[in-house]
Simulated assay, not measured.
Amino acid sequence: MSTKPEAHHRKLERLYLSANVQQLFSGSSIEVSHSKAEIKLPVDSKYFHGAQAIHGATYFKLLDDAAYFAVASLVSDVFIVTSSFQINLLRPVNAGTLRAVGTVRSISKNLFVAEATLYNERGKEVAFGTGQFMRTNQPWESLEHYELKLNNKN
């Protein structure tokens, strides 16, 4: 596939926003660029644990997604998957907007390493993580929301 990088990045953004799981994370946004991704999510009490702060599962999702899409920005032929992810939670958040920034650290033929940092609205680091990502054999074009299909055109 010879998709221009910017076109691939826009397709990845559309894929992210159209995923079913995003119905649970309404209001999130994503910006993908070369080896980097930034995701924002307004804090909502629906993400809180019993002590009224963001649950770690939300931290994980934002960190994993930011690192994942940083790697995906470099892989324009096939879908990738997370093979492992290490997360470190530093401080609670219960208001504002969360911002996750993912960047690629290491590239090999089939294994990529990326890191992500999660910030609160004041720019204070609240969590970070490092993940490993692998190529699959599934072409991006086979994914329903990667390619914009109009009418009966494929």
Rank of each mutant, 00 (worst) to 15 (best):
N88I: 10
T82N: 06
T130I: 15
L90V: 07
S83D: 08
H34L: 09
G129I: 02
V113P: 06
G27I: 08
I54Y: 02
R105E: 15
V78I: 07
T117M: 09
G129T: 03
N88D: 13
K46F: 02
G102T: 03
K109F: 10
E31P: 05
I87W: 00
H34F: 10
A37R: 03
L89T: 09
V104A: 08
V43I: 10
G131L: 05
S33V: 13
V21F: 15
N88G: 04
N110P: 07
A114Q: 09
S84I: 00
K124I: 15
G123R: 10
G123F: 11
Q132P: 00
I87A: 14
E121K: 01
K61N: 11
G96Q: 06
N110S: 15
D77L: 11
R105A: 14
Y68L: 10
S35G: 09
V81N: 00
A127N: 03
A114M: 10
V126K: 01
G123K: 10
T97M: 12
K36A: 10
Q132C: 11
L111D: 12
L98T: 04
G27Y: 05
G27H: 02
I80V: 15
S83N: 12
N20G: 14
Q52G: 01
S28E: 04
A57W: 11
Y68E: 02
S73I: 11
F85Q: 04
F25E: 05
I87V: 15
A37Y: 08
Q86H: 14
K36Q: 13
G56A: 02
I54N: 03
T82L: 02
N120Y: 02
K109I: 01
S26R: 13
G129W: 06
R122N: 14
V32M: 09
S28L: 02
Q22L: 06
V21Q: 05
N88V: 09
G129V: 01
T58S: 08
K46P: 01
R99G: 01
K46L: 10
V126H: 02
A57V: 13
G131Q: 06
A67M: 05
S26Y: 02
P92R: 11
L90C: 03
A67E: 06
E125N: 07
V104Y: 08
S28W: 00
V78P: 01
Y59F: 15
L90G: 05
N120S: 01
K61Y: 12
D64K: 00
F112V: 04
F112T: 03
V104M: 12
P92T: 12
H49T: 10
P92G: 12
Y47C: 01
T117Q: 15
F128E: 04
L111P: 05
G102D: 02
T117G: 11
K109C: 03
A70D: 11
S83E: 07
E115W: 09
F69G: 05
Y119H: 12
V81P: 03
G96K: 09
Q23F: 11
K36F: 09
V21P: 05
K109M: 05
D64F: 03
V71T: 10
F85P: 04
F60L: 06
P42C: 07
E121N: 07
K40A: 03
